[in-house]
Design a protein around this nucleic acid. Structure first.
Length: 190
DNA sequence: TGGCCGATATGCT
DNA sequence: GCATATCGGCCAA
């Protein structure tokens, strides 16, 4: 029987689209909390990808898979990604997670917020999980223990958020009906 | 629910 | 120097 780590390694090494979908429902275990991934986005060599728009910092997308990729946006927010695809440039952005364990720790890092808004956005998630930006470039599985779902959740998809190029690609994925996803889960079904 | 705007890293000219 | 960005919080209506 194969180790869990093998499946995670295969997921990161394979296609970015498969990884973005395959990570939905996965548990990320942190020292003081556990969360379920409910919303992701895929970036490859499309016009919106940092591999194209940020050739220097985004170089990591093309030279690695399975590494933590952290970038700063709007000068003040940070976002968590994992690089993917051993055969080409790719990364998956974590957009929203659902608290499973350690709710108090998450609340403490985002005081005054309703539970639903603790981690329903990439910048919020980064703060709520207390991620150290120094993890950038380190193996993702060193930073978090990843537990893939036994059975895949129902998945919906749509355009990615906050980009101006390549909007036609439906490369945002979320667990259909999850109240923990951002503008994409419950709000977006119309 | 919608819209406005802060505050700044990054890359390009 | 300038434009833009994988956003979040606050406010009015």
């Amino acid at each position: 029987m194969p180790h869990e780590g093998d499946a995670v390694e295969r997921l990161f090494a394979g296609s970015t689209l498969a990884a973005a979908r395959g990570l939905l429902g996965a548990l990320l275990h942190l020292p003081d909390a556990t969360v379920r991934v409910v919303e992701t986005e895929a970036y490859t060599d499309d016009a919106a990808s940092h591999h194209v728009t940020r050739p220097r910092t985004g170089r990591l997308l093309g030279t690695s898979h399975g590494l933590v990729y952290v970038y700063t946006i709007y000068g003040m927010h940070r976002c968590l990604n994992v690089t993917t695809d051993a055969a080409g440039p790719g990364a998956v952005l974590f957009r929203a997670v659902e608290p499973v364990r350690g709710l108090d720790a998450l609340r403490a890092r985002r005081p005054g917020r309703p539970d639903r808004e603790l981690a329903n956005g990439p910048g919020k998630l980064f703060v709520a999980l207390g991620i150290d930006p120094a993890l950038h470039g380190r193996p993702f599985t060193d930073a978090f223990r990843v537990e893939l779902p036994r059975t895949p959740p129902p998945i919906a998809c749509g355009p990615r958020i906050g980009i101006s190029k390549a909007r036609e690609l439906p490369w945002r994925f979320w667990i259909d009906g999850s109240p923990w996803a951002g503008r994409g889960g419950s709000a977006r079904r119309s």
